[in-house]
């Protein structure tokens, strides 16, 4: 009974936060609501006894929202006041149809599924989960790792500045090579000498 009330409260919170994600007018607020929605999802996992999944949900998803917030700042101007999220295409009919059909599909799937027991399944221990990753599910695990590695390497390649010497790439603005100073920088005399001369009032 207590569990059902708890689930009801959490479900209402989840729906409300998800609703605010799409209705908030300010991009940063949207992202914050998203973070809250993802955190509430972690609470659902805890209620189902999946503690490992809940912790990972917080670390990866809610933590990942931080990165999204940076986009929020970089893509909007705070000084213009609240940014209205625009819908430039204005295809409300097509969008509405799509939303209704997705809803119908999900609803059909839910209705057809035989009702599951309301009591949470016996929790799977973290040891069993780890063992499953490296035995039964090892192929999926490795493929996913490879996919993430490709994404990481791809991001670095795309973010890297193009070399000025490369041909056919000079239409874009080529930023000057930034001087990256080493951790321990030896003080070159050539740079410090004029400063010293100026400081001492020398008329060089």
């Amino acid at each position: 009974m207590l569990g059902q009330i708890g689930f009801g409260v959490v479900a209402v919170m989840l729906l409300f936060t998800a609703f605010r994600v799409v209705t908030a007018r300010n991009l940063v607020h949207t992202v914050l609501w998203l973070g809250l929605a993802l955190a509430v999802t972690a609470v659902v996992y805890v209620m189902l006894g999946a503690h490992f999944l809940a912790a990972i949900q917080i670390i990866l998803y809610t933590g990942g929202v931080l990165t999204l917030m940076l986009f929020g700042v970089m893509l909007t101007h705070r000084d213009e006041g609240f940014v209205a999220v625009q819908n430039p295409s204005g295809r409300y009919v097509a969008g509405g149809l799509l939303a209704v059909s997705v809803f119908a599909m999900l609803a059909a799937a839910i209705v057809r599924t035989p009702s599951l027991p309301a009591t949470p399944a016996p929790p799977v221990s973290t040891e069993a989960l780890g063992a499953a990753f490296l035995t039964e599910q090892v192929l999926a695990f490795e493929v996913l790792s490879l996919l993430l590695l490709v994404a990481a390497v791809g991001a670095i390649v795309m973010a890297r500045r193009r070399d000025a010497g490369e041909e056919g790439e000079s239409q874009g603005a080529v930023l000057p090579e930034r001087k990256v100073l080493p951790l321990r920088q030896p003080q070159p005399d050539a740079e410090s000498a004029p400063v010293a001369a100026r400081a001492s009032g020398g008329d060089a």
Binding site: H51, F52, A54, A55, G63, S125
Partner: peptide, 12 residues
């Protein structure tokens, strides 16, 4: 069971 992960999650 996942105490270390919990601590790291909130710390992060």
């Amino acid at each position: 069971d996942v105490g270390v992960l919990y601590a790291l999650a909130f710390s992060g």
